[in-house]
Simulated assay, not measured.
Amino acid sequence: MGDQQRLHDLRQQAHDAGIEGNSKMTEQQLREALRKVGKGERPEMAKQEAKR
């Protein structure tokens, strides 16, 4: 899978998880935020912490 497709898929997963405004997040930030949401953290907090 190409880098662009992988990033698109991550962004779609983040959107589905409720992480809004994720288009400016890096792949690493998206993965971190999705991991946090998977552990029960609120999407807004997961996004904020991943962008630090």
Score class of each variant (00 low, 15 high):
9 D>S: 04
19 I>R: 02
41 E>M: 15
27 E>D: 15
23 S>E: 15
35 R>S: 08
34 L>E: 01
14 A>M: 10
50 A>R: 05
21 G>M: 04
14 A>G: 09
24 K>H: 15
32 E>K: 12
24 K>R: 12
47 K>F: 02
43 P>D: 05
8 H>N: 12
33 A>V: 04
30 L>E: 05
1 M>T: 11
34 L>R: 01
7 L>R: 09
22 N>R: 01
1 M>G: 13
51 K>G: 05
21 G>R: 04
34 L>Y: 02
5 Q>H: 13
42 R>E: 09
25 M>H: 03
27 E>F: 02
49 E>L: 10
13 Q>N: 11
36 K>C: 07
5 Q>I: 11
7 L>W: 12
11 R>A: 02
48 Q>T: 03
45 M>N: 08
23 S>V: 09
8 H>P: 02
3 D>M: 13
24 K>A: 10
49 E>W: 05
9 D>I: 00
1 M>K: 12
40 G>S: 00
23 S>L: 11
6 R>N: 09
51 K>D: 09
38 G>T: 01
12 Q>N: 15
6 R>Q: 12
8 H>F: 13
21 G>Q: 11
32 E>R: 14
1 M>D: 10
8 H>K: 13
33 A>C: 05
2 G>P: 14
9 D>F: 02
24 K>F: 10
31 R>A: 00
15 H>M: 06
33 A>L: 05
30 L>N: 06
28 Q>C: 04
30 L>Q: 04
3 D>Y: 15
12 Q>S: 11
10 L>A: 04
19 I>P: 07
52 R>K: 13
11 R>G: 01
52 R>P: 00
32 E>S: 13
40 G>E: 00
12 Q>G: 05
22 N>M: 02
41 E>W: 07
21 G>S: 08
27 E>K: 01
23 S>K: 12
35 R>A: 08
10 L>Q: 05
29 Q>F: 01
32 E>T: 15
11 R>E: 02
33 A>H: 06
48 Q>D: 03
26 T>R: 06
13 Q>C: 04
36 K>Y: 07
6 R>W: 03
52 R>D: 06
17 A>V: 06
23 S>Q: 15
14 A>C: 12
1 M>Q: 08
17 A>Y: 03
19 I>E: 04
51 K>S: 15
43 P>E: 07
15 H>T: 09
43 P>M: 07
30 L>I: 09
38 G>H: 04
50 A>C: 10
40 G>D: 01
10 L>I: 12
23 S>N: 13
50 A>Y: 03
34 L>C: 03
7 L>Q: 11
41 E>F: 07
39 K>A: 12
3 D>E: 14
13 Q>S: 10
14 A>Q: 08
16 D>L: 12
24 K>V: 07
14 A>D: 08
40 G>P: 01
9 D>G: 03
42 R>Q: 14
44 E>P: 10
8 H>G: 08
48 Q>I: 02
5 Q>S: 11
52 R>Q: 10
39 K>L: 14
